[in-house]
């Protein structure tokens, strides 16, 4: 079985968000880059668990990014996976990224395509859904549990207001969230092995993005907290109703 895991680099979860060039560009100054947590903790680690259960499983990682994504890809390879493919382009919008990944995936003979449920930077939650249509595969979104037996997956996924258990045969695309797997830390052996794993760089296909970010904006700063003495909780309730009109 061949699994393709889509990974993206994102700013660290504690990164301070700021913009430059008249609020049109994300300020990357001092930003620590990480593997998007949903891609890493849930999608990649789940794929690695499948390979641990069946060593014949082959895992490829794919990302769309320029050479500055390489350290993050190496870190993902240190967790596991056999090789990585980097499509050498700046990610422009989700349709652009999904189309680039689809062009790589089409010739690859993949049985399963794993993505995180969304990236923590642009929060598009779109790559899995777009990929599935571009590849003509079914799409299982927001998966929280995954069991694989004899070419068939039993998956628990979030639906509106609850969860459902479904079965599906490969190939398909699945987006992963909390519950799928547990976060891991790469060990020294993995880090050493990652240095020699293949990282193929392929050039992007020519394509116009459908959308374009024209500017960013930070939310207005809070006016500051109004503290109410602990022995006057009824004053808080009065303010919430009369001043904030919150209930």
């Amino acid at each position: 079985m061949k699994i393709l895991v889509c990974v993206s680099k994102t700013p660290d979860t504690t990164a301070k968000i700021a913009f430059t060039d008249n609020n049109t560009k994300f300020d990357t100054n001092g930003i620590q880059w990480i593997i998007n947590p949903y891609d890493e903790w849930y999608a990649l680690v789940k794929a690695i668990e499948l390979k641990e259960a069946d060593p014949s499983v082959v895992i490829h990682l794919v990302t769309v990014g320029t050479a500055d994504a390489d350290p993050v890809i190496r870190k993902a390879l240190a967790l596991g996976g056999d090789e990585a493919i980097r499509i050498n382009a700046d990610s422009q919008d989700s349709f652009y990224v999904a189309s680039q990944i689809a062009s790589v995936a089409k010739g690859g003979g993949y049985d399963l395509v794993f993505t995180g449920k969304e990236t923590i930077d642009y929060n598009g939650a779109s790559i899995g859904g777009m990929l599935s249509e571009l590849l003509g595969f079914p799409y299982i979104s927001m998966a929280t549990k995954f069991e694989w037996t004899a070419n068939k997956a039993t998956i628990t996924r979030e639906i509106e207001g609850g969860e459902e258990v479904c079965e599906i045969e490969s190939p398909f695309v699945i987006s992963c969230q909390k519950g799928m797997a547990e976060q891991r830390i790469p060990n020294m052996r993995g880090i050493m092995a990652a240095r020699t794993k293949p990282l193929k760089v392929v050039e992007p296909v020519a394509l116009e993005p459908l959308t374009q970010i024209v500017g960013f904006e930070l939310p207005p700063a809070k006016a500051g907290v109004k503290l109410i003495p602990a022995d006057q909780p009824e004053e808080l309730v009065r303010l919430l109703r009369e001043e904030a009109k919150a209930f």
């Binding site: 999904a98 969304e118 859904g129 249509e133 799409y139 927001m142 639906i159 509106e160």
Partner: peptide, 23 residues
């Protein structure tokens, strides 16, 4: 932009080559 919307809108966007903004 809920579970169903997130599952369908991206695929429809890819099919129709329609630009998508989520959230």
């Amino acid at each position: 932009n809920n579970v169903d919307g997130k599952a369908i809108a991206p695929g429809l966007s890819a099919q129709l080559k329609a630009g998508l903004v989520t959230g």
